[in-house]
Design a protein around this nucleic acid. Structure first.
Length: 499
RNA sequence: GCGGGAGUAACUCAGUUGGUAGAGUCACAGCCUUCCAAGCUGUUGGUCGCGGGUUCGAGUCCCGUCUCCCGCUCCA
């Protein structure tokens, strides 16, 4: 079957990423591990640059503090956050047509008649009788789905009975009694503290970095002498046991987040949500993403904690995909941690002399996804003088190598001058010395890894101590004094300025 | 988890009815080269994804499995 152009593009990027040392498959010599990837020498430089750009954009503000919380946290954290309840969905398979469903999604297409029959049957089991829903007599699909799902998580007997009574057919093939017993899919990775594997000492690998920020809210505020409104930011790994990984780095089980939680007064939350949404979109643009490959998409269904939410999406070869989520988390998290820990997380309002629980605006960017997005955004093939040129148009701040130093030919002392210059540059930026093959070939090699500047030592250098600097995207050259090279490049690889 | 496609050198791929694993690129060592790659010489590099089976003999046939891509499903 013919592959789409987009598919070929992604494969070319994956291939380049491996060949040049950006991304390798995890444990490759053992056949790989599903959805796990390693960052090679160039990949790790670029990833660090990306994280650095984000870290600078956050922590150079007066109202944001940094944090690096432990990946393992007290298990109660995840009860409070709702992950233990909401991150495990009962799912069923159809034995005949092999379709898979979340239990709560099974009721969407059902007829009123069938719903009533289910309600009746379920009520016999005494499930609905305990709920408020029955008092209003009319059970909506959503309510029924919620009740049965919640019940099924604890005990699957009712669900199985309903299937056997031919009340829940497969929505796809329509056959009855073909659905398997519900199984819980827990999206959190579980491990054990101490050498004994026992449910009593089970802990989780964090599925988001946010909770480390919430539980440290007061610690940070007091030690840094901040006052609401202010934010706490953190970069770190998070883990989700996804059913399916997909699209190279896009959906993986281990990934890195760049999160900032902004604490504010209730009532100011909507204003800060808008501000941060704008600000974060601008950040992506400031690193070279064109407006037509970025969009903001509001969530249609809101999570249990959110009042407003949306995604910043980038146009990947496979279509638009989320690179950052913006959420108004309200006071949900702090309130829950207050409730579960018994510790006050309220702050004092100096004007009204009252205590309140701050609202939180979350900006949660994917470092791994962002990395892939910039790789895809930068990749370009073009024809120059009849020859193909592959170039990674990365923002200079993101580029893994900032400058290559090349002797035009390997004689007349050019290599010596070039090596000395490269040694000087190396102290303040990632640089590379290359003397193999024709200079044009060396330029193209640097283009392929996104090096923004190539400095060439030629015969003029021997005469007047000047060199050429060739810019990656335009391929234009300028001639400047050897002594000016470091300053010239440093001016042009600075982090973007964010307004 | 289901369906489809793929897996042979670091990369892209050939490999005929089952009969001694190949090319180009890349890399490395030289030569050549005075500004936009694919000139010359040489070299390194392969458990043919992995494990079984059939066979005198398997990259090739059969079974299982892993990984990647696509589509479903999933993605609080």
């Amino acid at each position: 079957m013919a592959q789409s152009t987009e598919q070929q593009l992604l494969e070319k990027i994956v291939s380049l990423a491996k060949r040049r040392g950006f991304i390798f498959q995890s444990s490759e010599i053992y056949g790989g591990l599903n959805g796990c990837w390693d960052y090679g020498p160039l990949g790790v430089e670029m990833l660090r640059n990306l994280k650095d750009a984000w870290w600078r954009a956050m922590t150079t503000r007066h109202d944001i503090e940094g944090l690096d919380a432990s990946i393992l946290m007290h298990p109660r954290v995840w009860e409070a956050s709702g992950h233990i309840q909401n991150f495990s969905d009962p799912m069923v398979d159809c034995r005949e047509c092999k379709s898979r469903y979340r239990v709560d999604h099974l009721f969407g297409e059902m007829s009123e008649k069938r719903l009533k029959a289910i309600s009746k049957a379920a009520n016999v089991e005494g499930v609905l009788a305990k709920t408020i829903v029955m008092e209003s007599r009319d059970v909506t699909k959503e309510q029924l789905a919620e009740i049965i799902t919640a019940h099924t998580e604890k005990n699957s007997a009712l669900f199985e009975a309903l299937v056997q009574q031919e009340l829940i057919p497969c929505p796809n093939c329509g056959r009855v009694k073909t659905l398997t017993a519900p199984r819980n899919f827990n999206l959190m990775f579980e491990t054990y503290v101490g050498p004994v594997k026992d449910a009593a000492n089970a802990v989780y690998l964090r599925p988001e970095t946010a909770q480390g920020i919430f539980v440290n809210f007061l610690n940070v505020m007091q030690s840094s002498r901040q006052k609401v409104p202010f934010g706490i930011c953190q970069i770190g790994k998070a883990f989700r046991n996804e059913i399916n990984t997909k699209n190279f780095l896009f959906r993986t089980r281990e990934f890195e987040q760049m999160e900032m939680q902004f604490f504010c007064m209730p009532g100011s939350d909507e204003k800060f949500f808008e501000e941060w949404r704008e600000h974060r979109l601008n950040w992506w643009k400031s690193l070279g993403m064109p407006a037509d490959k970025l969009r903001y998409k509001p969530h249609e269904k809101l999570a249990h904690y959110a009042r407003a939410a949306g995604d910043i999406e980038f146009l990947f070869p496979f279509g638009f995909g989320e690179v950052e989520g913006i959420h108004n988390r309200t006071d949900f998290d702090l309130s829950r941690h207050q409730e579960f820990s018994g510790k006050s997380l309220q702050v004092h309002n100096e004007e009204t002399k009252e205590k309140y629980t701050p609202f939180v605006i979350e900006t949660s960017a994917g470092a791994s996804r962002g990395f892939m997005a910039f790789l895809c955004n930068g990749y370009e093939e073009e024809t120059v003088n009849g020859e193909q040129r592959t170039v990674l148009r990365l923002h200079p701040f993101l580029a893994p190598v900032k400058a290559a130093v090349l002797p035009l030919v390997n004689k007349d002392g050019m290599p010596e001058i070039a090596e000395k210059l490269e040694g000087d540059l190396r102290r303040s930026m990632k640089s590379f010395y290359d003397d193999s093959g024709a200079v044009g070939r060396r330029y193209r090699r640097q283009d392929e890894i996104g090096t923004p500047f190539c400095v060439t030592i030629d015969s003029d250098t021997l005469q007047d101590q000047t060199v050429t600097i060739r810019e990656r995207d335009s391929m234009q050259q300028v001639r400047i004094a050897l002594s000016q090279v470091k300053e010239y490049i440093q001016d042009r690889i600075a982090p973007p300025i964010l307004l």
